[in-house]
Write a protein that binds this DNA or RNA. Sequence first.
DNA 1: AGCCGGAGTTTACAACGTAAAGCGAGGATG
DNA 2: CATCCTCGCTTTACGTTGTAAACTCCGGCT
Lengths: 253, 253
Amino acid sequence: MAVMMGTMTFDPQDPDTPEALGSTAPPGSGSRVTMRGSLSRRGILQTAVTLIDQNDLRYLTMRQLGADLGVEAMALYRYVHSREDLLSGVVELVIDDLYGDPDVHLKDSGWEEYLLKLAHGVRRIALAHPQVFPLIATRPPAAPWVRPPLRSLRWMESFLDTLHRCGFSDRDSVQAYRSFSSFLLGHLLLEVSAQGADIGPIEQASPHDTPKTDLSEYPRLQSLASELSQDHSATEFEIALEALMDRLQLLRQ
Amino acid sequence: MAVMMGTMTFDPQDPDTPEALGSTAPPGSGSRVTMRGSLSRRGILQTAVTLIDQNDLRYLTMRQLGADLGVEAMALYRYVHSREDLLSGVVELVIDDLYGDPDVHLKDSGWEEYLLKLAHGVRRIALAHPQVFPLIATRPPAAPWVRPPLRSLRWMESFLDTLHRCGFSDRDSVQAYRSFSSFLLGHLLLEVSAQGADIGPIEQASPHDTPKTDLSEYPRLQSLASELSQDHSATEFEIALEALMDRLQLLRQ
DNA sequence: AGCCGGAGTTTACAACGTAAAGCGAGGATG
DNA sequence: CATCCTCGCTTTACGTTGTAAACTCCGGCT
């Protein structure tokens, strides 16, 4: 039985699949009648996000971004200090999507519901912006104690405050923040990376790579081929998340 | 009490601190009498690794690497197809370090010892090459089911075979592989990223960033400042690893 | 001796980020 | 109304990058 090893089968029902999620069309994107003054930092960042999502990070070039906005590359520098700043802005923008997500309620819920909603919210933006998420994950944080992917001070504050109010000690709420961060980062980075490899924009890699991966040296891989090709990200995410929460529950006693 | 919020305090005793770990000196690195024929793919990759470790990924330039090897940039292209190929090679090389690690025994041990040693082995290389690890984490894998940071077929084979021999079902050993990968990725990426932010090579970021982060808006952060500034990566790694293994234990029944 | 192939160099080019100067429209000011 | 200033964008330019193509040169073969 020949199993398609370069492809994955996906779970049919996934709660965090990208549907709407704040697609406020960036001004000037699409409309070619870009008159003077239509540019704005937010619009630039939004166009940058769609540019990254549709292609690849290295496709986001100052000139390309300018062209997409109907403007010369140098015009962007009035709104972004540099390309680095642009990327930071992109990360910030995407994270901010989360803050406006109505499904992620911050106030007046148990810590368990809070963490659940938050985790799924983050997963939703990761899946909506698979090309941007690695950036969220790897961009150097403002301070060493700010951890991706919840890399804004207000999210940290919200998180730590909620847990504190739910009876976590100082030490334990910080501990929870760290566990939660690394859980999200690990799971989601792997998920979007696998997704990127599946429908990757560019096949770089070595010359005769994966036309048909030779597994003759690896009997276990061979026999697990079908198992490995199945994607259960959604359920695995759920299970691991609940396991984490059980651990945190014990912490709190 | 003024807490230093841009700095971290570290655990004194950490088992995975970088000491020796395969520092076979790359040929031609240091010796300036580079005669014809001294170049090799392996040597190039090794020099590239030290170049990344000492500075930054964006410091690794074909010309710079050539200069370090006492050779013109174009000479490298006889051994490396492109810069992308170079980076892939770097990742592969660093991962291979793990395969030669005597502390990571593969055969004839329980799955628990196997996972423990493997996890610490990976942590050791992550800490030894903090600048390279993000590359290991984010570089697109050969196939969607190959997951960083154990991104070689032989490691997958070894992993899955060991678990299989220890009584894990097909489904469960794959499940274990995935959990283990995301655990390692999340923890270690955050650890090296925090480390990189601490003694970061270049302060990019916004104009008046972190001269003194203003926390007046964030009371919870303020009161947790000291807690947040402490680094317990080693013990947290250990605890999370054991929690994961408990979960896997239950899987196996 | 003559050739030849492979290792490294030279030259060249397109694409990138970005500094610096230019420029035109519109509002403010006389 | 004329003038000027400023803001938003364009033009031009430069240095750095990855890499193709041609060239050079040395050591070993016939």
